[in-house]
């Protein structure tokens, strides 16, 4: 299908219909998921971890599961009040992506010897991340599209994108391969959020003030989560600050002050 279509030659409306479609998603994921099983090449073998390394990796993966389950619940809950059929279809592709992320992280936990991943996730979940989750799901329950898409597709996705990218560069080969695939999805999700909000903000500039307030409210939770993850990933001060500053730069680029 895309052989004949140059997305850049399309009108804005047709462009959105094209990039938000199932067909577009199918072609995108076929590129990087073909031949993988639970996000990595099935032939890959695991490396040996020391006990502290293993424990830290398990805690980090447990928190990735919290974030992905949040994203799954939020994106699925938003379909009913999506502002257009194209947005509903995009969110459906995101639902499948988030479900896949959750599945691959849970599978990784099982590979690392965790027999009951959900019990482990409950035990190791970061409190700030749980508070962030509750706030996002409140916006979804209230069917507040602007706040929900901002918190889900901008803040949460930018948070995941920044951490996963940093972790992928230092992780063991299997975790790194899993994260590389997930990061590609997150980039697509952030693009949708930026695009959707960009148009809304052009039409209703006062929305920015409200979203800025939400950003300021949630920012301490995000930074506290980063700080915990930096400890688990054994990042030095510079690397830890770099995660936070990359995140803040992403949010700033979208015109939200921190």
């Amino acid at each position: 299908m895309t052989d004949a279509i140059d997305p850049h030659a399309l009108s804005e409306e047709d462009f959105h219909a094209e990039v938000h479609s199932f067909q577009f998603w199918l072609e995108a994921v076929e590129g990087y998921l073909a031949g993988t099983e639970f996000g990595f090449d099935a032939g890959q073998t695991d490396e040996t971890f020391t006990l502290p390394e293993l424990s830290d990796l398990i805690t980090t993966l447990c928190n990735y599961c919290v974030a992905e389950k949040t994203a799954l619940e939020a994106s699925s809950g938003m379909i009913r009040f999506a502002p257009s059929p194209d947005a509903a279809i995009f969110l459906s592709t995101q639902v499948a992506d988030e479900g896949r992320h959750l599945e691959v992280f849970v599978h990784r936990l099982k590979m690392l010897g965790i027999e009951d991943p959900w019990q482990e996730i409950d035990n190791r979940a970061n409190r700030s991340l749980l508070q962030f989750k509750d706030r996002l799901l409140e916006f979804v329950d209230q069917q507040d599209w602007e706040a929900a898409i901002f918190v889900q597709n901008v803040l949460l996705e930018a948070m995941e994108f920044t951490v996963f990218k940093a972790h992928a560069s230092s992780a063991d080969p299997i975790t790194s391969a899993i994260l590389a695939g997930v990061v590609k999805d997150e980039r697509r999700h952030m693009g949708f959020g930026e695009n959707d909000l960009g148009r809304k903000l052009r039409q209703a500039p006062h929305t920015r003030t409200r979203l800025n307030q939400i950003n300021k409210e949630l920012n301490p939770l995000v930074l506290s989560t980063f700080s915990e993850i930096a400890k688990e990933l054994k990042l030095n001060t510079h690397q830890g600050l770099s995660i936070s500053s990359n995140y803040l730069a992403t949010i700033d680029r979208l015109g939200f002050s921190t």
């Binding site: 479609s21 199932f22 067909q23 799954l72 699925s76 379909i79 059929p85 509903a88 279809i89 459906s92 592709t93 639902v95 499948a96 988030e98 479900g99 896949r100 959750l102 599945e103």
Partner: peptide
């Protein structure tokens, strides 16, 4: 997880 795949199936059918 299953419902996530079904969501995407149904979206594909709509499309």
């Amino acid at each position: 997880m299953f419902l996530a795949t079904q969501t995407l199936d149904e979206a594909r059918h709509v499309e």
